[in-house]
Write a protein that binds this DNA or RNA. Structure first.
Lengths: 186, 186
DNA sequence: TGACAAAGTAAACACTTGTTTACTATACTA
DNA sequence: TAGTATAGTAAACAAGTGTTTACTTTGTCA
């Protein structure tokens, strides 16, 4: 039954771990661990769980959210709310977990880039900055978040807001991180 | 040792599960499971893991990212890059996992709200819309994402872009979801 | 109705689990 | 220097683990 799988999913969300065969028996009212094993086998075929040796481990799929189609935000358009794919937010936003940090945006200098005050940006340290990247830079001893541009070894840090000025670092410039993704909560 | 904890963290990221005491012994070159238990005890005190009966379960902390301070995006300001807190992106963005879906933004009608084409929005179904919320609405049989406003039972769906017009639903209007958070990847 | 596949039961298997007790080595402080 | 926490070792424990084999029930479809 598919309901049994959602039962296990619920258990996983609640306990942050997968149930054992015996626990599955209790949850699904099985009387034999064999049935539990067959259920897990099926979930392994679906890719919901996988086996690490004899251990059963949840995959990204089990902890994922359904992804729907795109909304036509420009004008009303028919967009079937079909399930396209599922994904884990963490895995989508964070490619390199060990070098990734979160910063909170304050100020409005990047507002035209869709970065509002209070937004959180995920930055990756040690990543080389390319033209057009949004970077966290330490310029003349102070921190800032700006577009990064380099032309003939001349670096400019440009805001995404007409009311702010482009910065041309004079003394020391250290690109400490590159913005790889952003998120906002309402 | 603190390095032993990061060893376990690495194992957790790699295998999506915590190591057993015997595996910890191998990882940390312990010769007794007692040492492994003491390590886990310490991690439990720190809140990195917790016990579900006899089972050891990773908490949000173990799968979390370090959160730094805020960047003064408006103008260069001294912002110590101190670790403020740690958080899991999933838990931050998704309060109600079972009713949350992901949609991709297309079009530019919400651009002044910091929603660019290609952004992903997390929407929650069945949540009542309040004035000022960004909603996914099915109006006159078509889908759209707009600001929701209601004044004396008269509903208006307003874009965040001067070049688009406010929609006043005539026939059927169905608020199918409320935008609770957004994310963007560069 | 009968054949057949899928799902469930029961019991036993070898193995791993976290825990505990008693003891030893190391590090640090008064 | 002696005393004392802290960290590590060794061995044994009961309980729980996933797996397997043989059998029974259930459901489906020609």
């Amino acid at each position: 039954m598919n309901t049994h799988i959602t039962t296990i999913k619920d258990f996983y969300f609640k306990h942050n771990r997968l149930p054992s065969y015996r626990e599955i028996c209790t949850l699904c009212k099985y009387k034999s661990t064999r049935s539990a094993k067959l259920l897990i086998d099926k979930m392994e075929d679906t890719g919901l769980v996988e086996r690490d040796g004899k251990k059963i481990v949840a995959t990204e799929l089990l902890g994922s959210l359904p992804v729907l189609g795109r909304v036509e935000a420009g004008f009303p358009a028919p967009a079937q709310e079909e399930l396209l794919d599922t994904m884990t937010i963490d895995d989508y936003l964070v490619p390199n977990k060990s070098a990734t940090y979160i910063l909170e945006v304050s100020g409005e200098s990047m507002i035209d880039a869709g970065l509002l005050p209070g937004d959180l940006v995920l930055v990756e340290r040690g990543k080389p900055a390319k033209n057009g990247d949004i970077v966290i830079a330490e310029v003349d001893g102070k921190w800032t978040m700006k577009y990064f541009f380099q032309k003939n070894s001349r670096v400019s840090l440009e805001p995404a807001n007409k009311n702010f000025r482009t910065i041309y670092p004079t003394q020391e410039l250290k690109i400490s991180a590159v913005v790889i993704s952003t998120m906002r909560k309402y």
